[in-house]
C-alpha cells in the first residue's frame, strides 16, 4: 500500500467572487522510501499540493490517504497528531520561532507530543547533531546563516520521526553550495528509509531525486523515474 495516496484532489481559492483553481484533480501514489521531486512553473500548484499533503490546509474535493488513514475525515485533534508525528514539513522561509534558540525550536513538536523535557532535550540535541549543528544549539535564528536555519528547520521536521518529509523549495532562499549541503542531508535521510518529497525550481536539485513529477496549471503533466541520479556530495 502506498504511503501517500491522493485521488482527484482539487483546491480552488476564492478571491472575492472569482474562483482561482490551484489544483484541478491530482491523483498520485507515493511509496515508502521514495525520493520525489515536484517541479513546475510558478503558480502551477506545487505549494498547494504540499500544504494539502502536510495537512496544513484542506482540499476542495478529492481524497487523501496517508499510511492508509483517511486524513480528511479526522477530527481536529487527530489531525494535529498527524501533523505532529506523521509528517515533517520544511518551508522555504524556514518558519522558525524568532525568539527561541535552535534547541527550543527543535523541541517544539515534542512539546506537543507530550514528551518530558529531559527526553526532549536529549532528542533535540541528537537531531541537531545529525544535521551538523551541535555547536549552534543556543543560537537564535537571527544568529544563524540561512543554511543553518534551514537545517534547524529540518531537524525540527525530523525530531518526531515522521513517515513523510515534505520540503517546499527548501533551498529556494539559499546559494548553490548551501543548497547542495541541504540536498545532501535530505538524500542521506532518504537513504535511511525516510520518504521525501521536495518541491524545486532547480533542475540540479531535482537530479537528486529518483522520481520527478512535473506540474502545469494544477495538473500533473509528467511523472518519470530519473535516469541520471546525482550522487550526494
Amino acid at each position: 500500500m502506498a504511503l501517500v495516496a491522493v485521488s482527484d484532489l482539487t483546491k480552488t481559492y476564492m478571491l472575492g467572487q472569482t474562483a482561482v483553481p490551484a489544483l484541478r484533480g491530482i491523483s498520485l501514489a507515493i511509496d515508502r522510501g521514495e525520493f520525489v521531486a515536484v517541479m513546475g512553473s510558478s503558480g502551477s500548484g506545487k505549494s498547494t499540493l504540499m500544504n494539502l499533503l502536510g495537512c496544513l490546509d484542506a482540499p476542495s474535493s478529492g481524497t487523501y490517504h496517508l499510511a492508509g488513514q483517511d486524513v480528511l475525515r479526522l477530527s481536529s485533534n487527530k489531525l494535529a497528531a498527524v501533523r505532529n508525528t506523521s509528517v515533517g514539513f520544511v518551508f522555504q522561509q524556514f518558519n522558525l520561532l524568532a525568539r527561541a534558540t535552535a534547541l527550543e525550536n527543535v523541541e517544539l513538536p515534542m512539546v506537543y507530543a507530550g514528551i518530558g523535557w529531559r527526553e526532549r532535550t536529549r532528542r533535540a540535541r541528537e537531531v541537531l547533531a545529525q544535521v551538523g549543528l551541535s555547536d549552534r544549539e543556543h543560537h537564535r535564528p537571527s544568529q544563524l546563516s540561512g543554511g543553518q536555519q534551514q537545517r534547524v528547520a529540518i531537524a525540527r521536521a525530523l525530531v518526531n520521526q515522521p513517515l513523510l518529509l515534505l520540503a517546499d523549495e527548501p533551498t529556494g532562499a539559499l546559494d548553490s553550495v548551501t543548497s547542495d549541503e541541504i540536498m545532501a542531508t535530505l538524500v542521506r535521510l532518504n537513504e535511511g528509509g525516510l520518504t521525501v518529497i521536495v518541491v524545486t525550481h532547480d533542475a540540479e536539485v531535482a537530479r537528486y531525486a529518483r522520481r520527478v513529477i512535473h506540474f502545469k496549471d494544477g495538473r500533473v503533466v509528467s511523472d518519470d523515474l530519473n535516469q541520471n541520479i546525482r550522487a550526494a556530495a
Binding site: L108, P109, Y112
Partner: peptide, 16 residues
C-alpha cells in the same frame, strides 16, 4: 498569528 500557524503546523492542538 504566524506563531500560531507555526505551532499548529508542528502539531499543536487548538486547546494548546
Amino acid at each position: 498569528i504566524r506563531e500560531i500557524g507555526l505551532r499548529l503546523a508542528v502539531g499543536a492542538r487548538r486547546s494548546d
